[in-house]
């Protein structure tokens, strides 16, 4: 681990001011950052420990929404009564991720900022990784790419975003409230994470001086009919091969509106507006879900070892909508 300076600011403004130095990083749960520092992938020269800032609350917002503090742990969020009542899919998604030990440490803000688990990014022994070493190439495109993306890839990067929680947040249309030196702003979840394009080293649209304050969930009609389904190589402590967060607003067997986001398939949680639009007004039936699933995977471009993800994602979408329609039983 490279030597670094350690600071513990008293409040958010002080924290934001502290990131002035190049290579400063906020430290919260540390479940990903510390790992990456040990791996010599992240090399911050200053750590700004924000863990004790007053950002751990989960509060109701006017109009029925919920504000998830950036420093509330994943475990506390998944276990929160209001989260479970209003956004059961989010609780399911969080519990599908990591392990209890990690969820006890990991924070909501940190979950958004997890870095990819691409092998070639995670191990500096590989020379070619545009995300780790901009301009160095991508070893995954021609390498072992079973866990890589099939949607929204670029010739520079085919990594996936590893989070489960973010898939549910994307489907729910969350907003990310952040504070920079110039004050607060709100980023729509769909605009928070980026596709790799030519700059895969930049994961999100969060500016260097910005700190996540909270993730705000709008009130929605989806609590009764939602589900998160994750397909993985083992029953726990494995990243998604593919996952789907699906929600339905039903009116007597007809879909009034739908939400769909996918995990494990792209550089960001992949919300499918197209599939959502196709489902609106259709009967809540297997046939409708299959049509939506095909639409969601249109344009998918698999690589040597991950062709299976296309059909797996479709099956996962169909299962998630079926479960959602049936009342959102746990997958």
């Amino acid at each position: 681990m490279q030597p670094f300076e350690y600071q513990r600011p008293q409040n958010a403004q002080e924290a934001v001011n502290g990131v002035d130095a190049a290579h400063a990083k906020f430290l919260a749960g540390g479940t990903n950052l510390i790992d990456l520092m040990k791996q010599q992938v992240e090399l911050p020269t200053r750590l700004i420990d924000i863990k004790r800032l007053e950002l751990a609350k989960i509060e109701e917002m006017p109009g029925g929404g919920l504000r998830l503090g950036a420093l509330a742990t994943n475990a506390d969020t998944a276990g929160h009564t209001l989260v479970r009542q209003r956004y059961p899919m989010l609780a399911q998604a969080i519990l599908a991720g990591a392990s209890p030990q990690l969820r006890n440490m990991a924070t909501n803000g940190g979950n958004l900022l997890q870095r990819t688990r691409c092998y070639y990014f995670y191990d500096p022994a590989y020379e070619h990784c545009n995300k780790r070493k901009p301009g160095s190439g991508c070893a995954a495109i021609e390498g072992f790419n079973r866990i890589h993306a099939i949607l929204g890839t670029s010739t520079a990067c085919i990594a996936t975003h590893p989070s489960d929680m973010c898939v549910a947040l994307a489907a729910l249309g969350a907003r990310v409230r952040v504070q920079g030196k110039g004050g607060e702003r709100v980023i729509e979840f769909a605009d928070f994470h980026r596709l790799p394009g030519r700059t895969p080293e930049i994961d999100t649209n969060l500016r260097a001086d910005e700190l996540i304050l909270s993730i705000d969930l709008p009130a929605g009609p989806y609590a009764a009919h939602s589900a998160y389904v994750k397909v993985r190589d083992r029953a726990s402590y494995a990243f998604a091969l593919v996952s789907a967060a699906a929600a339905l607003e039903l009116d007597n067997g007809t879909i009034r509106s739908a939400r769909l986001a996918l995990g494990g398939v792209a550089h960001k949680p992949w919300r499918s507006d197209r599939a959502e639009a196709m489902l609106a007004g259709k009967p809540a039936s297997q046939q409708s879900y299959v049509v939506a699933a095909n639409a969601a995977l249109e344009g998918a471009k698999p690589f040597e070892h991950n062709a299976f993800k296309v059909e797996m994602a479709k099956a996962t979408i169909v299962r998630a909508f079926s479960l959602a329609a049936a009342g959102g039983d746990k997958a």
Partner: peptide, 13 residues
């Protein structure tokens, strides 16, 4: 899993 270019085990954790 082996990376065929380098002979390195990719999932070494």
């Amino acid at each position: 899993h082996i990376d065929n270019a380098s002979g390195r085990i990719v999932n070494n954790n």
